[in-house]
């Protein structure tokens, strides 16, 4: 197989002062690097890197919907990309408290490609488009905020006014939403 018995001489000759400790770049980081290099966002979305240009694994995406119920609002999502990306999907949370049938008040997001339908061929771009669509087409069939989903299904007019009230800073039911316009 391989000549391990160069080992004998090698162990005696080996220089103990090797190179300086080097940061290991995981395969996940390399793949993410590619995702970033090909990122192609719609005007309504932007990305920022709070830890600077060398930490791509943690970033924020800001979405400003340009149509639909949420027009005028600004919603920030945090992304945490695990070292096993893309074998595992990024963890995405909504940092902005929002009245939305598919996002709960803790910021959990119900988007199929973030969990059960994640595939390694998907990428960051796909997720951001998916999030954007949650705002243009909120979906009462996959509720995380049960009340909001029921209102959207039964009374879209009221849903619309609830959303307006929430994003301009006000109460919907018992819950106070911060202004995010």
């Amino acid at each position: 197989m391989i000549k391990l018995f160069k080992v004998k001489e090698k162990q005696r000759a080996e220089n103990p002062n090797g190179a300086a400790p080097i940061k290991k770049q995981s395969a996940g980081e390399l793949r993410l690097h590619r995702d970033m290099g090909e990122l192609n966002l719609p005007k309504s979305c932007s990305i920022s890197f709070p830890n600077g240009k060398d930490d791509l694994m943690n970033f924020e995406v800001t979405i400003r919907p340009d149509e639909g119920y949420y027009l005028g609002g600004t919603f920030i999502f945090t992304f945490q990309v695990p070292p096993m990306y893309p074998h595992e999907p990024p963890k995405v949370k909504c940092k902005t408290k929002v009245y939305h049938p598919n996002i709960d008040l803790e910021g959990n997001v119900c988007l199929n490609i973030l969990r059960e339908d994640w595939k390694p061929v998907l990428n960051i771009n796909t997720i951001i488009y998916g999030l954007y669509h949650l705002f243009t087409q909120p979906n009462h069939e996959d509720p995380l905020n049960h009340d909001a989903a029921a209102v959207l299904r039964d009374n879209p007019k009221m849903f619309e006014s609830n959303v307006r009230r929430a994003i301009s800073g006000g109460y919907v039911g018992q819950t106070l939403f911060p202004r995010c316009m």
Binding site: Q25, E29, H33, M36, G37, I47, K53, D54
Partner: peptide, 21 residues
């Protein structure tokens, strides 16, 4: 885009990274 030992030397996109590099 070019990366070396965890340091992003140049990124073509997104614009915010392009600007930083």
């Amino acid at each position: 885009s070019v990366t070396h030992r965890g340091k992003n030397l140049y990124m073509q996109a997104p614009p915010v990274l392009e600007e930083m590099t």
